[in-house]
Design a protein around this nucleic acid. Structure first.
Length: 968
DNA sequence: GTGGTCTCCTA
DNA sequence: GTAGGAGACCACA
């Protein structure tokens, strides 16, 4: 090892625990052996060995070793017998994976280091020291805080699961002290997991503050008398010895008598066949193929290695999957596994795709589609906006590897002086569409798309109907909504392909470029267009083969069939219809807002004594809290003083003039920039209407989201904002109808938690917030002060959001203790709610997901996190999801049924335009309004039936007017 | 140009 | 305290 070398040390024992808790629990080999953590470990190693440069680490290792704990007893037990005494046994299905991870390390040809009497951390500390002394750098692959004391200029850490490097600044940011003081900090705080005692009542924040003040632990303990806080002083004196022992426990040994010299860690190129043998045995098909591609090995020629599972371990463990593989029967989950494996074992051959340029070939493909009964289909267009896009061509696939592209509007490149003309020998749009029209409308051929709503709209605009279809994006959404951390698992094709097929598709930008020089798809040459477009269809088909069988295997067919697939034409039609927006009204309002804003700006500059960028929170903060010296409220996570409306309102309340002006200015400029200025830009030049885009698969709960423009957040709370709704109008001779569910989420809560009092209140049509207030505060509903009702209302909402004292206190601007007391009182009065919340949390922890009343699943893998904040957040989300999600399912059911119900009743000219979570907006001929409103309400109120019979009535309120403001 | 931060709009 | 999208600013490439 020499200067410039870079040693990677993987904390193998730490990784396995973390991976086990962070990854979905269901990863198993076909014989039931749990291998989730092993899979994560292998992927991580491979990534570090292949592309460490592409990660946060940014360097490629020259030396590499994986370090493990040898056994649970170490020298620390001699120091302090209780050390790690409260460690429970590892979970059953984790046990066999310890051995497998060591096997994996050997399969990777990497040193597998452990030593009796020492923890992995001590070995890591020692090797890091040795590397530094030899002039090399070290990256420790771990995010364990116990290792942070080792961080120096030459030693950093890397969290492989978050792709995050941890250097000196990150340690300071996280713990408030530099790495050199981490030992003292941990000595003070202790560690309940490892049973390191520490000093009671001292957490990380306090410890950092004390160390900042006194420098180090010894000084602090010797001067403990000076501490002002009584309890803290007493504890520091009483537990000084415990703190000193703790320091010895957390201090890592850098002088372990290691058996392997660091030079033996030098990295050799991977032994492809050996590694592949192991990966095959583990059934990691995707990684197997990646390794094969990188090492040039032939997968088929390599036999799966024989891997022994540690004796005594229950290899099969308790089965966690809802459908168990039993016997030889081809169960859905077995089928799903087998197909997934077959699909991902094949490679992609871009040169094998066909470019269809004559009608006979296209007809041959159509015949092939009939034969196969399935056809993956994808359109290529000039725009992401399906209401403006023009068709460039479309692609087809009938089985894996068998795919083609049909160009219809490609032009020759711009480099050609005579260029810009249509390329010859392309089928015309009419000809090509005519050839596929009958098949597209024939349910005998299942059309498979990825985000099919887009292609559906393109074809709908061209007069081609699609009947009989599947959407891989929606299937993935039904199966995996919420998996991965922080919703990182999207359901876009690139992500799905990498995840399920182990294949990275050709990036769109490789064809079109980006930014100013970006070209439209019709300018892409046919060879590359064919490779790209046909690949998309090919991928879609393979994804369908992998994902579709899982629906049955995991009991999610009806969710997909009733709540997802039918939404494609429903939402497609709504987006196609758009809504009429009055440009004049918006333009007038923009002018007014501009004037108002300019006036306020002058006043602000005068009050501030200088001109500055009001919209910059940074500059504004400097003026308010620096120059003017106003007292700051809360801080943002980057340490800036917050200038949120809440803070400014508080300052205004204390008699300061400027903050009030800022609030006013913000409101006016917000309304202007986000709404009155932006909306006219979305009016489609052709239709003269605004066509929002609804995302069907973007939320974890099942709600839709709306974008470009977002029509689900048009202002309503303030009179100024509300006026914007007057610009959403019905055309001459028509009215807008707004129909919204009253208190749907509270009704769902009453139903799912089965709360007699709430159910009765809804059945009797009572004011639910007043009723809650009356129950909680013993105040009669008659003559109840509005403040009392307001508090009960906030609590009711809080319950739906997975209440916390902190949140309720914030909402009501009351002390946290008071909020806490309210919650306690609420739970005493409605114990069923508490039971429901506890049961929901327990279910989410056990299964990793929660369900709506219709069986839609929302995954919260991080609910098992050891990070209390993250865990609590996931608990609240898990409590909220069945309520929010069930309401979302109900309105989806209403929407799916609505068009047909309207048409059957002779209201074919009444059009559903928008959805805003609990509200539907329609456009109807004036003459039909009165007759259609009861029908709309009826469909919405009975939307849960016949699948579910709610024990609470649903109530819908509907009104018609010339514009959205008056209708709502 | 891109991505992160802050703020604010909705149910 | 839940679920979203978007605009402005600003530091980075």
């Amino acid at each position: 090892m020499k200067k410039g070398d870079h040693l990677f040390l993987v904390d193998g024992s730490g990784y396995i625990f973390r991976a086990y808790h962070a990854l979905p629990p269901l990863t198993r080999k076909s014989d039931g052996l749990p291998v989730g953590a092993v899979a994560g470990f292998c992927n991580m190693l491979w990534k570090l060995l292949q592309n460490a440069r592409d990660t946060e680490v940014g360097v490629t290792p020259t030396h590499f070793a994986v370090i493990f704990d040898h056994s649970s007893k170490t020298f620390r037990n001699d120091l302090y017998p209780e050390y790690k005494a409260n460690r429970s046994e590892p979970p059953e299905d984790l046990v066999p994976q310890f051995g497998l991870i060591r096997e994996a390390t050997q399969a990777f040809d990497l040193p597998c280091i452990e030593l009796a009497g020492f923890e992995a951390d001590d070995l890591i500390a020692t090797y890091a020291r040795l590397a530094s002394e030899a002039g090399g750098d070290t990256t420790i692959i771990s995010s364990d805080k116990d290792l942070m004391q080792l961080v120096t200029e030459n030693v950093s850490m890397y969290d492989p699961m978050k792709d995050r490097e941890i250097n000196i600044p990150e340690v300071i940011e996280k713990w408030g002290v530099p790495p050199g003081k981490m030992i003292d900090l941990q000595a003070l705080t202790g560690d309940s997991v490892d049973n390191v005692p520490g000093v009671p009542g001292i957490g990380p924040k306090t410890a950092a503050q004390l160390l900042e003040e006194y420098g180090d632990l010894d000084t602090l303990l010797s001067r403990a008398e000076e501490i002002k806080q009584k309890k803290r002083r007493e504890n520091l004196i009483e537990f000084a010895d415990k703190a000193r022992i703790s320091r010895e426990l957390v201090k890592l040994r850098i002088d372990v008598p290691v058996e392997h010299a660091i030079d033996t860690f030098e990295l050799a190129p991977p032994d492809g066949p050996k590694l592949i043998g192991f990966l095959k045995a583990m059934e990691f098909t995707t990684l197997t193929r990646r390794v094969a591609e990188a090492t040039g090995a032939e997968v088929a020629e390599i036999e799966a290695a024989h891997v022994e599972v540690e004796a005594g371990a229950d290899a099969h463990g308790p089965d966690l999957t809802p459908t168990e593989d039993t016997g030889d029967a081809d169960t859905p989950s077995k089928l799903a596994n087998r197909i997934a494996e077959a699909g991902s074992a094949q490679t992609f051959d871009h040169a094998g795709y066909e470019c269809i340029r004559d009608i006979d070939t296209l007809k041959k493909w159509v015949a092939e589609a009939y034969e196969a009964g399935i056809l993956a289909f994808d359109t290529e267009t000039t725009s992401l906006d399906p209401m403006q896009a023009e068709l460039c061509g479309f692609s087809l696939a009938t089985k894996p590897g068998r795919a083609a592209y049909v160009p219809i509007a490609h032009k020759s490149g711009s480099g050609d002086l005579l260029g810009g003309g249509l390329i010859e020998n392309q089928l015309s749009q009419e000809e090509a569409l005519e050839a596929i029209r009958a098949m597209m409308a024939d349910p005998a051929v299942l059309k498979i798309g990825q985000n099919l709503k887009y292609d559906w709209l393109i074809m709908y605009r061209l007069g081609v109907e699609i009947v009989g279809c599947d959407d891989t994006m929606l299937i993935s959404y039904v199966l995996d909504a919420g998996t991965g951390s922080h919703g990182t698992v999207g359901h876009g094709m690139d992500a799905l392909s990498e995840r399920w097929l182990g294949h990275k598709p050709i990036p769109y930008k490789d064809l079109t470029g980006t930014g100013r020089k970006q070209i439209t798809f019709d300018m892409v040459d046919l060879e590359r267009a064919t490779a790209y477009a046909a690949e998309d269809a090919d991928i879609t088909l393979r994804l369908w083969q992998v994902l579709k069988p899982r629906l049955a295997a995991e009991g999610l067919v009806s969710v997909y069939e009733r709540l997802e697939r039918p939404m494609i034409p429903v939402i497609g039609r709504m987006e196609h219809r758009g809504i009429s927006v009055d440009r004049q009204i918006l333009s007038r309002m923009s002018g007014d807002f501009a004037q108002t804003a300019a006036g306020i700006e002058d006043e602000i500059y005068t009050l501030a004594g200088e001109r500055f960028t009001i919209g910059s929170p940074k500059q504004l903060g400097e003026i308010l809290f620096g120059k003017m010296g106003l007292p700051g409220g809360s801080k943002t996570k980057t340490g800036q003083w917050s200038t949120s409306a809440q803070v400014l309102e508080d300052l205004a309340g204390a008699g300061h003039e400027l903050p009030r002006k800022i609030v006013d200015w913000r409101q006016v400029t917000k309304l202007k920039s986000t709404y009155t200025d932006a909306l006219p830009g979305y009016i489609n030049p052709e239709t003269k209407r605004v066509h929002t885009s609804y995302a069907l698969a973007s939320t974890t709960t099942g709600r839709l989201s709306s974008s470009e423009p977002n029509l689900q957040n048009i202002p309503v709370r303030t009179p100024e904002g509300r006026k914007i709704r007057t610009a959403f109008v019905a055309p001459e001779g028509a009215k807008l109808i707004s129909a919204d569910y009253s208190q749907i989420e509270l009704r769902v809560l009453a139903h799912v938690a089965d709360i007699a009092e709430l159910k009765k209140a809804f059945a009797d049509g009572l004011d639910i917030h007043a009723m809650t207030a009356s129950e909680m505060f013993d105040v009669p509903v008659e003559g109840m002060p509005s403040e009392v009702r307001r508090r009960a209302k906030a609590i009711n909402f809080g319950i739906i959001y997975g209440i916390s004292a902190f949140g309720l206190a914030n909402q009501l601007a009351i002390p946290r203790e008071e909020a806490s007391a309210y919650i306690k009182r609420y739970f005493e009065r409605f114990p069923g709610i508490k039971d429901y919340m506890d049961a929901t949390k327990a279910k989410a922890k056990e299964l990793g997901y929660v369900e709506t009343i219709f069986g839609r699943r929302a995954h919260y893998p991080e609910i098992r996190s050891s990070n209390p904040q993250l865990r609590a957040f996931n608990e609240r989300a898990a409590i909220n999801a069945p309520i929010q999600g069930s309401a979302a399912d109900i309105i989806r059911r209403a929407m799916v049924r609505m068009d047909a119900e309207l048409a059957d009743a002779g209201f074919g000219d009444v059009k559903m335009l928008l959805q805003v979570h609990d509200e539907l907006i329609f456009e109807a001929p004036e003459s039909k309004v009165d007759a259609v409103i009861p029908l709309i309400c009826d469909v919405m109120e009975n939307a849960a039936l016949p699948a579910r019979s709610l024990s609470v009535p649903l109530q819908v309120e509907a009104r018609a007017a010339d514009n959205w403001n008056e209708a709502h």
